[in-house]
Design a protein around this nucleic acid. Sequence first.
DNA 1: TCTGGGGTCCTAGGACCC
DNA 2: TCTGGGGTCCTAGGACCC
Length: 442
Amino acid sequence: MFGLVDGNNFYVSCERVFQPRLNGRPVVVLSNNDGNVVSRSPEAKQIGIAMGAPYFEIRGLLQQQRGYALSSNYPLYGDISRRVMARLADQVPAIEVYSIDEAFLDLHGLTKWLGSLDAHARRMRRDVLACTGIPTCVGMATTKTLAKVANRLAKKYPELEGILRLDTESRRERALRALPAADVWGIGRQYAQVLTAHGIRTAWDLAGVGETWARKNLGGVVGWRLIQELRGQPCQGLQPSEDGTLSRQSLRCSRSFGQPLTTFDDVWGALSTYMAKAAEKLRTQGGQAHLLTVFICKSQYDSRVRPPYTRSTTLTLPGGATSDTLLLLAYGRRLLERIYESGHSYVKAGVVLDGLEPPGRGLQLDLFAAAGSASPANDAKSKVLMQTIDAVNKQFGRNSVRPASSVASGNAPPWQSKALWRTPAYTTRLEDLLVVRVLLNK
DNA sequence: TCTGGGGTCCTAGGACCC
DNA sequence: TCTGGGGTCCTAGGACCC
């Protein structure tokens, strides 16, 4: 039996923990750059604000309803997520952290010890709420996909009180009939259109399609697995997270710019900033990457711009896997030169580190390497240099040592994202801790 | 005026290996 | 005129997820 626990309106719930005045009001959290709505309180959903809506389209409505819009505060959400996952991990044999606000639970064999699974799920919800302030829903079923279905319905129908268990044929059928096919995990916009065109409306209809049809229309073997999971046949196991964190195969840093950029130097300024961040993150995990991808995007919303909107290029690092910022910057600049076209304006750029390897795998040497590239001696020097940079940045602030290319001549760099309504990092920055004053009666 | 960021998995052709 | 079988890796792109 799998469980799926998921935080309700997670980002909004995190904000409400520290700002009770947000309770009962329409609240939205915006994406980086204050662009789109990425989390909505129930009150915001009720007045018709759609997920992903551009902020400029809903601003009027929100003001009129005396609601709040907040910039996203990822350090806060990440920290609260960690606390939620730790509470859950304490109460089940194994947990797979699936995203910042979701985890699959291993519930196998628990009934033997705990009696009712529903009672255990209720206890977990109470515990997470009491310890972190985050409300959750729990779905339980024999496959991950059905656990997602159960979770979805538990959220949709308040009378279920946040819990739904699908462990009999009749319950499964009732649930699948109640869920639109488009809401099934793994059915996105494209596939939803295909299903509509074929008269497939509910998850129950979807569970009835044949193997050939599923493989042909729903992305090959992935689609067929989805169908089997809906039928109760598990195709995916639990992939336990080590110490409650995600183990990753790739790592990315990308941002939309605060304004469109039209020069190579500005785009490189932004990109080198992101590369330094990505490399630092990689070192924090103790890993190395052997694939480097750079991409730049033009505006999809500008009618003068023709597709493709994104250009990307990938390099297998000739010296083998690395986490050396300077080496990555040197290769990254060459990759940007490959795809950058002058005379265009760019709105976003990013870097992806792929092919992640744990440290200590041994350095792959390049027989024809030029001086200055990978060699055991250089590798040792680079390691010391990176450790020093990380230590300095930890002690004196994040940007104390950074690539010269990321230092803008003016005040704020032109690529700097907007975040006009960011709340404090209540739980991760000492200066931002709330102060509680106690008034004593004399 | 203003439209996110960070992930996963799969496919498929071509180069190259023995 | 005739030209293998079984692999891996690289690269790009497309779908999905929260």
